[in-house]
Simulated scan of single mutants.
Amino acid sequence: MNYVQLGRSGLRVSRLALGTMNFGPVTGEESAHRILDLAVAGGINLVDTADVYGADANKQVYGLEPEKGRTEEIIGRWLAATPSRRDEIVLATKAYGAMGPGVNDIRLSARHLVRACEASLKRLRTDHVDLYQLHHVDRLTPWEEIWEALSLLRQQGKVLYFGTSNHAAWHIMQGQHTAERQGLLGFVSEQSIYSLAQRSVELEVLPACRALGMGFLPYSPLHGGLLGGLLRKQDAARGRSGRAASAIQGHRAQVERYEKTCDAFGEHPAVIGLAWLLHQPEVTAPIVGARTDEHLFLAQRALEVDLDAEQLATLDDIFPGPGPAPEAYAW
């Protein structure tokens, strides 16, 4: 396993991150713990979660999802079983989503951020989070208030680093500018959707991260399974729902060409999709939401694949990116 710095921070993280969104609703606790064990044994030290993970949309009660937080609890029991594991991982979680029925149980107010962090620590059975991420932009709460709350959490030793998720470039710049005015380090990473099949962040988010010295953590690196051998698997359950189901409608010809190209490269489509991301200079660590041991093994294989310039050009030809702004849409 190779390790790199997370943005301009001194924190070193593995080139793959373990995503845990499936722990609970899809992957049972025993299997989740085994995947965590395998990930750490393979050198993965970045474990990513969120306070809202764990809910099953089919078990909503009056519009609420009572099992939110279950994923953090699963990770917390894994950490508690062997306390030394806490020192082996860089633990990342997020806050923004509704965690209760109250009007202040959502977004990024100081009240919600502080309470959300303390609740996550309790579920995770730890005294601090290494990376605390704003799960979505809050257009109502001023950045000054957000940074006051985040600074308090850091002063209390509950959080070490901060990141954003699902923020536009100008949101990141606003937040970072406010942090700099207050003499703070600011954000060290952004987490957003990015894959061969979804390259919108190349317009402005990736250039902003590069300019600010922020790491970038792509989620849904295989676009919900679209790039994971979807057609060859003929997995009806996987193909009827989720991001892949909607994407395949307009991309079948591309996916067919992609899977044939992967065959020519001699690698599984999931391996090539992740390997392509690992060749993008702004990418720190793709977040692999492994549901099974096999998914994790395929992800680790991607670390060993070295794509040459011709192969990268072939993949870009199948799924062309937009290019950077403003050249992508202006002269």
Rank of each mutant, 00 (worst) to 15 (best):
G24L: 02
M214Y: 05
M99I: 11
G76Y: 12
L185F: 08
D37H: 12
D56H: 14
E30L: 14
G69K: 08
M21N: 02
G63Q: 03
I172D: 00
M1K: 02
S241E: 14
A313F: 01
P281D: 06
H268D: 09
L108H: 08
A325Y: 11
Q182H: 12
R85I: 09
R252V: 07
A32P: 07
I106D: 07
L227A: 09
A270M: 13
P320Y: 02
R257Y: 00
P25I: 01
T141I: 03
T126L: 12
V205Q: 05
S109G: 11
L16R: 01
A299N: 04
N166V: 13
A179K: 07
T292H: 07
W331R: 13
Q191W: 08
A41P: 08
G289K: 10
H128Y: 10
T49W: 03
R70D: 08
R111T: 04
Q300G: 09
H33M: 05
K59Q: 14
L134H: 07
Q174V: 00
G157E: 14
G19R: 10
Y96W: 15
I287C: 04
S241D: 12
L222Q: 12
S9R: 05
G225K: 10
L140Q: 12
H295W: 01
V283H: 05
P326M: 06
T20A: 14
G250P: 00
A197D: 11
G273T: 08
A98S: 14
H167F: 15
Y132V: 04
T141M: 03
I74G: 05
W147M: 10
T126C: 13
D317C: 03
D127P: 01
L6M: 15
Q280M: 06
Y62S: 13
T178E: 15
L11H: 01
K122Q: 12
M214H: 08
R181T: 10
L152Y: 03
E72H: 04
Q311A: 11
G63M: 06
V103D: 14
L121M: 03
S246H: 05
V4S: 09
I35Q: 08
R257S: 15
L113T: 05
P66D: 14
A208K: 07
A237C: 01
E148R: 15
L36M: 14
L231Y: 04
G229T: 04
S9M: 04
E259C: 02
A313K: 12
L217H: 05
L315V: 09
D235R: 03
V137I: 03
R107N: 13
Q234M: 09
I146N: 03
R115Q: 08
E118Y: 00
L140V: 09
Q156W: 15
A179F: 02
Q5T: 15
G100S: 11
R238F: 08
A168I: 00
L222M: 14
A270N: 03
P83L: 10
N22G: 10
E267V: 08
S192R: 02
L11V: 08
H167P: 00
V26L: 09
W78K: 05
G242D: 08
R125S: 13
G239I: 02
L206C: 01
R8I: 07
R238D: 03
L312D: 05
L153E: 03
W276D: 06
L140E: 14
